[in-house]
């Protein structure tokens, strides 16, 4: 029984860490974007204030049952992925469900939430939401291809589908996978640009066209849930990249440094880019990123 309580406490700690780190990154990204555009920008803790404000609000209307369920679906994805992806190496508090799922499972649990949230967005009847969803799903087909190719290359090369095993490979050989499988890393990072939905791939929310797309009918607690789920999910994805390509992290400071370095890539790429159309975005991912994915697979097979 004690073990169960320990597991549950560990899970709660993990989720809180993920929430705090993820939401700080979002605040920082607002600040950095503003500085690049020569504005002053909000303080980095602005997103905490926003989240607190949203959480304390009450909603007045709803459009039906799925609208309640959608954000809960989204939360399943975020929390499940942060529980399954190893946060720290060999720390008893962060073990969670690490050994219960593998990479294929992660790939599939990661789409559960967006699809569930899409259902919630669909019931509101707002055409902008549905358009945002179709764009998001289409773009997902785009960036999943190079991303899966990178993962397949890793899995083929090291004969495992487990994230923990891939981390151990890096510790044993003393070399990060981003150096020993460079093409896979390039393909995965290019896919990451689409995963984080900064410009030029922000076609889902598309502030000036779709009025924040799938989220447009959500306010108060719903928006808070979606927002916190987004930040937890961002942290989970960054941690997955760190685990796979940068040897994981021994303590939280190391993890924060590594994840933030990775987070800067889509953010800074986005600051200077205009927005693609959906089909341009899809074809972009099927161009160079897929080429690097092929190289990664060839590299994994030949060497």
């Amino acid at each position: 029984m004690n073990e169960l309580w320990f597991d549950i406490m560990g899970a709660i700690v993990t989720v809180i860490v993920a929430f705090v780190v993820g939401i700080t990154y979002m605040g920082l990204s607002r600040k950095i974007t503003a500085r690049v555009q020569n504005r002053k920008g909000p303080p980095f803790y602005q997103n905490f204030i926003d989240a607190l404000k949203l959480a304390s609000k009450t909603s007045a209307i709803h459009h039906g049952f799925m609208q309640h369920v959608g954000p809960a679906f989204m939360m399943i994805t975020s929390i499940m992925s942060v529980l399954i992806i190893p946060v720290l190496r060999g720390n008893a508090w962060f073990v969670n469900l690490n050994f219960h799922g593998d990479l294929i499972f992660i790939l599939y649990i990661m789409v559960f939430g967006p699809l569930g949230m899409a259902l919630g967005a669909g019931q509101t009847g707002n055409p902008n939401s549905a358009i945002g969803v179709t764009r998001g799903l289409s773009q997902m087909v785009g960036f999943e291809i190079p991303w899966v190719m990178a993962l397949v290359a890793l899995m083929m090369q090291y004969h495992t589908t487990s994230i923990v095993d891939l981390m151990n490979v890096q510790i044993q050989s003393g070399m990060w996978l981003m150096f020993s499988s460079p093409f896979a890393f390039i393909a995965a990072v290019m896919a990451m640009l689409g995963m984080f939905r900064y410009s030029p791939f922000d076609i889902v929310g598309a502030p000036q066209e779709l009025a924040s797309g799938p989220m447009s009918e959500n306010g108060g607690k719903y928006l808070f849930t979606l927002m916190s789920s987004g930040s937890i999910f961002a942290f989970a994805k960054l941690t997955l990249y760190v685990d796979l390509f940068m040897g994981g992290a021994g303590n939280l400071v190391e993890l924060v440094i590594k994840t933030f370095a990775l987070y800067l890539i889509p953010m800074l790429y986005g600051v200077t880019s205009p927005r693609y159309r959906t089909e341009q975005s899809i074809r972009w991912f099927w161009g160079w990123p897929t080429f690097f994915g092929f190289l990664a697979i060839i590299y994994a097979v030949v060497f």
């Binding site: 209307i61 709803h62 459009h63 009847g125 707002n126």
Partner: peptide, 11 residues
Amino acid sequence: TRYVTTKDISS
């Protein structure tokens, strides 16, 4: 909250 029709949306 109360239920509103799908016409009652922010556009």
